[in-house]
Nucleic acid binder design. Structure first.
Lengths: 214, 214
DNA sequence: AAAAAAATTAAACACCCGTTTGACAATCAG
DNA sequence: CTGATTGTCAAACGGGTGTTTAATTTTTTT
């Protein structure tokens, strides 16, 4: 008899990673038990230790799998786009896409950094972040060299954009209150995302390109 | 014989609140055990349940004790300062003071909101936040009515300022990387704080008061 | 098809969790 | 002073934790 069962997503390792991303983000690393992970994934408790060594090993694997993808996207932008300003715009869009679609993952990362309890994870995140940042800084320096951007407190400008992104993703409830939305779904919708990225692009423009009338 | 012992900070309840603020912030609520709390406070494990009912009761008490103070400060600003713009500036300074000096507490709050696992806490935080926000929104509306502020996406502007604050406090390590500092102490120093608040005030000014040369 | 390796399982392990108990001291009201 | 209330303590409770074991099935290799 033919096999009509679904596509057979049956790689235990992959399923555990998926489930872990969802549960860790929703409940926090500490609050999720390996038994919950195993149940949700439909596998035995022992599989976490077997495949990842330990519970934090699972979290480390999750991170190691995701970070390289962002760096790839960034170097695509660096290579395929000509003007620094358009590189920045593309970076904002790229990050918005990454964060809005993978906000569970981002919440995990930010929580780990805020706790700073697991040095191995903190280092992995810090390194990745430094890499991303040096690329972006490169975009801005290029723009200033070419006289397209005015000199400005670049570090704080980047920090502001990052902080806005980060808080939107991590503090959906509070952002809803601030933005006058009645539901988190609204700010994470395509429309909410557009409103937000437009605002950030405008913020960058104000800081990097606009000359004030004194 | 006279009693030369130190000022006798011996109110168990108060000590537990102090210790809880520090430990919860540093390690996260879940990762802190009531035995750690009791040890650090130099009291018996049972005292947490006795004084606060439970471990989360302790966290709730911590929050209930701190929130009203911020609202007091805000209404002082509203009553003692005349122009909307100066009210906003004073609010930024006030919040900077609160956050920089009580960043442990703020980290706890943000983590609780990010997790959204304890409805009672989430509601308390949400309510407080809504109160604070309506006051600030009032400042801005007042400025727009008086023609001092240009119309702008006020919600997003506030969200940006809040996001920057929040991330600076919650993600010290990442902020250091962005700001080119080698140590978290630097960004939390008086100098770092001034740099940051100046930047945020400038950001508000750009969005609310500056007319561009098109 | 037989042997080796890898994956999965149920059960157990040792430990730590938040909370409760009941005995004992301190404080205070009448 | 007496009785009651409150605060503190060591010890125990029941249950949940991440991880390991040893047996068994599945897969791969020879």
């Amino acid at each position: 008899m033919a096999d009509f069962s679904p596509p057979e997503r049956n790689d235990t390792r992959e399923i555990l990673l998926e489930v872990a991303e969802r549960l860790f983000a929703r409940k926090g690393f500490e609050a999720v038990t390996v038994r919950q992970l195993a149940n949700e994934a439909g596998v035995n408790v022992a599989m976490v230790s077997y495949h990842f060594g330990s519970k934090v090993g699972l979290l480390e694997a999750l991170i190691a799998e995701k970070f390289p993808l962002t760096l790839e996207r960034l170097s695509e932008i660096a290579n395929s786009i000509s003007t620094p300003w358009e590189k920045l715009l593309a970076t904002v869009d790229m990050y918005a896409e990454k964060l809005f679609e993978g906000y569970n993952f981002h919440r995990i990362i930010m929580r780990e950094m805020s706790l700073s309890q697991r040095p191995k994870l903190v280092n992995a995140i810090t390194d990745h972040f430094a890499n991303v940042l040096s690329v972006i800084r490169g975009f801005i320096l290029e723009g200033q060299d070419k006289g397209m951007f005015r000199p400005a407190d670049v570090e704080l400008t980047i920090a502001t954009v990052f902080g806005s992104f980060s808080t939107l993703i991590g503090q959906g409830k509070l952002m809803c209150i601030m933005l006058g939305e009645d539901c988190e779904d609204n700010i994470y919708s395509a429309k909410g995302r557009a409103r937000f990225t437009d605002h950030l692009k405008d913020l960058l423009r104000l800081h990097l390109m606009v000359k004030e009338t004194v």
